[in-house]
Every structure is written in structure tokens, then in C-alpha cells.
Design a protein around this nucleic acid. Sequence first.
DNA 1: CTGTTAGCGCCTTCAA
DNA 2: TTGAAGGCGCTAACAG
Lengths: 354, 354
Amino acid sequence: MIGISKYNIKLRDVAKLADVSVGTVSRYINKHPSVSKKNAAKIQNAIEQLGYIPNLMARNLAKGVSNNLLLYILQEKPILESTWLYELPIIQSIYEYIRPTNYSLQLAMDYLEDKLEIGRFINEYVNSKRVDGMIILSTFEIDDATILTLMKSELPFILLGNQTNILAANQILFDNYHAINEVMDYLYQLGHRRIALINGFAHQQHMIQRASAYCDSLKRLGLDTCDEWVKNANHTVDGGCKCMNEILDLKKQPTAVVCGNDDMAIGAMKAIKDRGFSIPGDYSITGFDDSILSRIAEPDLTTVKIPLEALANTAIEKLIESMNHPDMTIPKKVLACTMVVRSSTGRPKPEYEL
Amino acid sequence: MIGISKYNIKLRDVAKLADVSVGTVSRYINKHPSVSKKNAAKIQNAIEQLGYIPNLMARNLAKGVSNNLLLYILQEKPILESTWLYELPIIQSIYEYIRPTNYSLQLAMDYLEDKLEIGRFINEYVNSKRVDGMIILSTFEIDDATILTLMKSELPFILLGNQTNILAANQILFDNYHAINEVMDYLYQLGHRRIALINGFAHQQHMIQRASAYCDSLKRLGLDTCDEWVKNANHTVDGGCKCMNEILDLKKQPTAVVCGNDDMAIGAMKAIKDRGFSIPGDYSITGFDDSILSRIAEPDLTTVKIPLEALANTAIEKLIESMNHPDMTIPKKVLACTMVVRSSTGRPKPEYEL
DNA sequence: CTGTTAGCGCCTTCAA
DNA sequence: TTGAAGGCGCTAACAG
């Protein structure tokens, strides 16, 4: 604000030039039907001549809106590359959707450990009127208190890929459970009867769902459970490698290993290859995410594709809808994943088959 | 704004409760020194009691600022995964820097092809006062007209990883040229005399710089130039694979291949392995980006690390600095990259050595 | 269909 | 150190 080098054109300048009142100009700009053609033309003329662009802050203050949407991302620290790969398509899809609207996209990130900070942040945003709606992207459970703050406020919000039990609505999710069921069925049909699991963080929502699908599938298919075949790694290649090595040290070997994400699957494959075994000859491996890693792996990886774009589009669409209809509730929605079969899975060796 | 279910506390409510004027409350909130201790305590009390949080839009309108920073990303369409991997660390670093400040981060993206849209967008942002500063992230050249609009406006801005010739300042860059020089020197020292290049888009700024470093290095080191050894791919694994296959079909073979990014390097490695050759035994390969791909490749890939965090930090730091000192110019800055030596490079076979 | 005017909630100058 | 009051630029009732 120091140095008023460039005078900013205001509504009243346009009104003066067009020789009408500010009210008429305002109505014209807001597409109010009651502006005569004659005046509309004069105003449009003046606007173009002056290069007038409305001051958003003034407009928003008067209207009581902010025209801002917030994407609030909660993530682990340090942030994993697999998380990036998950987030960016979502960010992009959301922006793509917003672009033709009048909304701006605001981005904020916090670390899951900082529960206090998250609560403070939400509270601040709920009260300072700086956004009209909020999408929360998190793969870990969010504090009930935070959700409650949100619910009590009138701010429309959506949990994206994040589940909460204290709320029946406002969640757009994808179906980890059925995805892993499908993977297990597929392995079973190939002839596998000994299936291990290298999963991710034990407290991460998606991983919890995947683990429970794995366990339920074993029962459903009448397969042996073996505690030593269930591992938790840290979502990285190295972590997957380490876990697979532990499994390879066991006396009783599985014939297939289901992994919680592609990174860990790559690590598992590495461990297997390092010991001179082959994939899928000796071990079948599956991942999750259908990331670029799964495509460049050798052999390329059977995995599960998450409908990230559809998730993002659904979320933002519903959010805007509920902003326009404040009384509307956003029903919970669960989108399906798709299994992508590639070369890392095959029939087990004959001696292992039933 | 429909349904005033929850009354929003305002400055005047605090003033009433604290039994002072709104002016005094405002001064207290803005940390103006001239507020008596007694009143300060009363006000603080009232604020806490009411849970008052200032309305940002009103404050900003009064102050003539927006408290918003814009990160404007221009990218190719469709967006490549290698671009994602490049952008997200930057986004994160920028947000990390902004978090403790009062600024909010706004995000916008456009496709490079839409030149008109980009110009319109910039113009809109420059005039609607919705942001106080802007970082433009693009790997492709930006229209002079767009830059000029920005220069003429009083809006502080920075080009991040993007060079323009019509401006001597406002650019935070990284040194592609020296990085490739270093790679070439390294290969030369290993004994390589026949070095090919699989580069990316011929019109992308970084790739242009890498190509020119490659050519200059050949001269500098007194090596043969061979047109057939210089290829342009589309930044993907498949593209790199295709180009490498073309090279492998040639009569005269290089002993090393420098690639414009890790993806293409992985593709090249794939082509080589598919023909039964070994890496680095028969061919040495280098990439660029130090992405996760380079670490999971087999063998893992010699590559170049771009200081993304430092770039982002420098950019946002300088931007905020120049927002506080409107007369300040942000000098151009070029950060160094680091070569990361791994196992995809080695001495060439004896028969090829000089 | 249009002009007038009172806000939107806060900041900041001016006098006291 | 404080209170009063006039903006910031735009919107939306209201009266005409």
C-alpha cells in the first residue's frame, strides 16, 4: 500500500464514466436481470475502457462469502513419496474442477502428530470466514474433537479418503476392503494357498482395512493363518525389503505376498530376487496404488488402482453442492478400486499346489 | 449466509464486554504499543471469553492487503508423473515456509498451451487484489507479454525454475548446465569417449540447457559429435525406451547415454537389458532428478539431484522480503545441482577405451 | 428499471 | 492513551 503508483479503478469510476449509479453497475456486474440494455451497453463500455476488475475483498465482505475453498492435507512426517503420488492427482483434479468456477483454491498442510495444531487451525478457519468450504485429505484417523468442531460450525466440509465413526455422512471413500478381497480371490484362483501380507502402518486407515480384508479372506477361503506371515513396514521400498527378508528366513514359506503399497512390493521383489528366487515363479507379489513404480518394476507389478480423480471430483462436486444448499447433507460414498493384473503374479510351483 | 444459526463475534462485541472502544480493541489486536496494560488485560479477557477471531476479509479490505500468496503452476498436458515428483516437494516447502506466517497459500494451475488463459488469469489476479504476491512455477518459457503485465503491476512475483530474457531479476533457478557438464566430465574420466543423449522436450527450458551443456562438453572434451546419438523423447519411460532402441540399431554404438530425466533413463536401461546387454558393463546410463525411480532401478541410477527445497525456500523468502520492501528488486539466483553417483555408470569395455 | 444509502467488520486518523 | 468517526469497495434493500 506504500506508493500509490497505479490508481485502482473502482466501481464508482465506472459509474461516473457510464453516467449511471453505482447500484446499477453493481447489478450489471452481478448479472441482475433488471438492467436496461442501453445502460448495460454503456457500463460494459466503461468497464472495458477503464479495464475495471472488481476488488474481491470488498465484494466478499459485502456478500459475506470468501470465494475460497480449502484443501487441508494431513500427512505423516516426514512425508513419503508414495503419499505425494497419492496426493497430487487429487490436488490437480480438485483444481481442475474449481477452475471454471469463481472459487479459489487454498492449500494447507499439517502433520498428523500435531493434534493441537490441527484443532487450532480448524477453529481458526471456521471462525475467520476465510473459506466457504473445506476438503480434508488424510489417511489417518482424525480426532473426534476436530470433527465435532467442524460439525458445530456451519462450514461445509468433506473428508476425502478418510473415515470417521462419529459421523454418518460427509465422507468420500474408496473401497480398500473389496480391493484386497479381489486380490486374494485372484491369488486363490491361481492356486495359491499360502499367502503372506506386508502391510503398512498399523494405525493408518487404508492399511487397517486392507489387513482386515486379508484376514477375512483367509477365513473365507479356508486358508491357513500364520502370524509370521503378517508384517508391517513403513511404506517404503526398504521397509518392504526388510520384511520380505524376514519372511524368507522362515521355515514355512508362502507362495504369494500381498503388499500394502507398490513401494513395499518393489522392496519385497528386491529381497526375493537378491536371494536368487524368481517372480512370479517362486513368489507371486501384489502391490497397491498402481503408481509409476508398479509399471517400471521387473516384472511389472500386479496392483490395485485407486480412483483418485473420481474421488476428488466427487468430493469437490458434493462440497460445492452443499455450499449452495446449506441444509443438504452429503451422503457417505465409497468408490470401487480396480485390480490391475500384470506379470508379478502367476501360478505357484506344482509342489505347493493343493 | 442463510440461517444465522451461529452469531459471529465481532470487534464491537469484544469492545462492549471489555468496556472500551473498538479502536482500542483494534489497536490491541494489531499490537499497537499504545494500549494501557489495564485495558490490554480486559480486552484479552473479553477475547478469550467470547472466542473472538477477527474476520479476515474485513481486516484485509481495511488494510488493503489480501494476506494471500499465490503459487501458479504452468504445466504440460497431460501432466507427467515426473512433473508431479518435481512439483510436490516445492509446494510442500513453500507451505512449510508460509505456515508460521500470517499468509495463506493459494494454488492455481494452467496448461502451457492456453496462452490466452494464462494472460487473462494473470491480469485478473494482478487487478482483483486477491493476492499480495505470486510465485510462478513453470518449466517452459512464459510469454513476454505476460511477464510485462506482471512487471507493470505492483504485484511482487518470482519465476521459480523458469528463465526469461526480458527481465534481469525475479528468477530463482537451478543450474542444469553445470550439472550436465559435471556428468559429462565424470563419464569422460571413467573412460567414455562415445556419449549419446536422450533428452526431453526440445522446447522445455531445462532440457534446452541440458542439451547445450552436452554439446559444449563434447567440444570441450574433444569428443566426436554424432547426430544420431542425440534424441528427444517425451519424458516418459516408454519414450526413453524407444529412443534407446533407435540408438541400439545404429552401427556405431556409444558407450554411455546421458538422459534428460530418470524416467527416460529407466526406459533406456530397459531397452538395453531387453537386448541382453548389461549396465554398466556395456552401457553406462545417467538420469536427472534423483527421483524414487532412480533408487529402485536395477542397477540403481547415477543421476542429478535438483535442490527443490532450497529453490522453494529461496523463492518464498525473497518474495515475502520484496512484499515488505516494495522498492526492492529480487536478484536472479542460480542454485547448484548435485551429481549422485550410483551403479548405472562404470568404465567402458576395454575395446572402446582410447 | 434506477438512484440512494446503509451496511459488511475492521483499521486508522484526528482530536482530545 | 483513548474514543469517535470516516473510510476500505462493494452489495442489496428501499423508495421512487
